[in-house]
Design a protein around this nucleic acid. Structure first.
Lengths: 239, 239
DNA sequence: CGGAGCATTGAATTGCATCAAGGCACGTGG
DNA sequence: CCACGTGCCTTGATGCAATTCAATGCTCCG
């Protein structure tokens, strides 16, 4: 495991506190921005459940999520068991591959805008501009931290703990969390949450119910959850 | 999630099939090697259970594992529950940090040799040499793949499946796996394995016993496990 | 002084009881 | 109709405790 973005000690590099508004863009010089735009093509998905690419397809590009939300899933063996590896927020990069093939299937969960960066062009660009490459390295380190955290969350066997960690992930999001009302607006269904947390959808329901009876959250509707006792949630959550 | 090493499509970049012998070194030009050596300091640990650094210490260097094996652990909250994030093989980089502090504690599991690369020197070097930086980016992508796989393994609830995946990880290792006899020589105890797989040490024992009664493995001694039915293990394992 | 045998420690394993997550079925509501 | 929630039952992982085993250190005796 591991890889520190060398830049995390430098103010020039992205902090670990990315939010919806804190995109890669803000860190770019005008020239870098122009160069990236010259190789990028914008993609827009107006509805959810659209596939960006499939696991196993030849990997020829990296993607930058600008708006919306996508899920990254991996399908196991022959049996259909699905595993959601991550939910991605604006500012995240995706396109992880191995032996030239994408490792995941990427699906939109909401109207989404993203940029497609062809790998060969991008590599050329990153070799030309080493400072720009440092930003990508920092992004990679950020994803690594996220994966490590998530691994620890999955290590917890109490569904409530996993769910608490999951809910708290939304604090980063401007789009799906309103600090005023402290309401999380879940862009995915119980099944998706279950596949992400390695639970069944029933267990997700039950865990949510338990958190509610314990006064930590309050369900306005299935997709709208108000975080009542942030302190207790934080204590429960692993990270 | 995600980040493809742009280089995975280029033969110049490290393949995903790293083994103990396939170190970063082999991919470096003599000049790159010399530059890295000029900023690196070699560290040798002659026995196991030595701490390289502690979680929370100020992160000022990246490390390259040259020989031996280390474990990367994260300690939770106040209670002592420990989570082993990864076991590292020769060729791996470590030193992941957040807000300038190391995220893990690194401990040797065997006599170990590693190189210490101060972050400020390294960043300078990577800005000078963008091609060298691509190698680091590729390493980061590799760690990301590893973390993603591990996350899926932890998603499985059957301890046997997790253990099978764990045992198969050793196939990469020249040091701890002998293809002739097909014997894995475990460098860690049951407790460590348990903390890695999010099980109890009893569950590890039981899972191993079950794999043995089903003819997939054979215990020569607690630390020596012969892989009898590779096919069945692969079917059982997630990845 | 040296070596055989015993004691101690810790890891690993196994039996047993418990408990909680999963799976099924059904009901509800948008 | 599909997503969500919930009661009931089953299953299997956990936790505790007892046992085995290995390695080490120690004593005591030759």
């Amino acid at each position: 495991m591991a890889m520190t973005a060398p830049g995390t000690t430098s103010p020039a590099i992205s902090s670990s506190q990315d939010t919806d508004l804190d995109h890669l863009d803000h860190l770019l010089t005008p020239k870098q921005r122009a160069r990236l735009e010259s190789i990028a093509s914008a993609l827009k998905y107006t509805c959810r459940d659209q596939i960006v690419y499939h696991q196993g397809q030849v990997a020829d590009a990296l993607y930058f999520l600008d708006l919306g939300m996508v899920e990254l899933t991996t399908y196991q063996k022959s049996d259909g068991d699905r595993h959601i590896v991550a939910f991605l927020y604006p500012g995240d990069l995706f396109g992880l591959s191995e032996d030239g093939r994408y490792l995941n299937t990427v699906r939109t969960l909401a109207p989404t805008k993203l940029y497609r960066l062809p790998l060969d062009d991008l590599q050329r660009l990153l070799v030309q501009d080493a400072r720009l490459q440092l930003l990508f390295l920092a992004k990679a380190a950020q994803e690594l931290r996220k994966a490590q955290r998530q691994k620890i969350v999955l290590g917890q066997r109490d569904p409530c703990r996993r769910l608490a960690s999951f809910l708290l992930e939304f604090l980063r999001s401007n789009q799906y969390y309103d600090p005023e009302t402290r309401i999380v607006s879940l862009p995915m269904n119980r099944r998706d949450i279950a596949d992400y947390l390695a639970l069944t959808h029933e267990s997700v329901s039950r865990a949510l119910a338990k958190l509610e009876t314990e006064g930590m959250v309050q369900r306005q509707s299935p997709r709208l959850v108000r975080l009542k006792d942030m302190r207790a949630l934080n204590d429960l959550a692993t990270y």
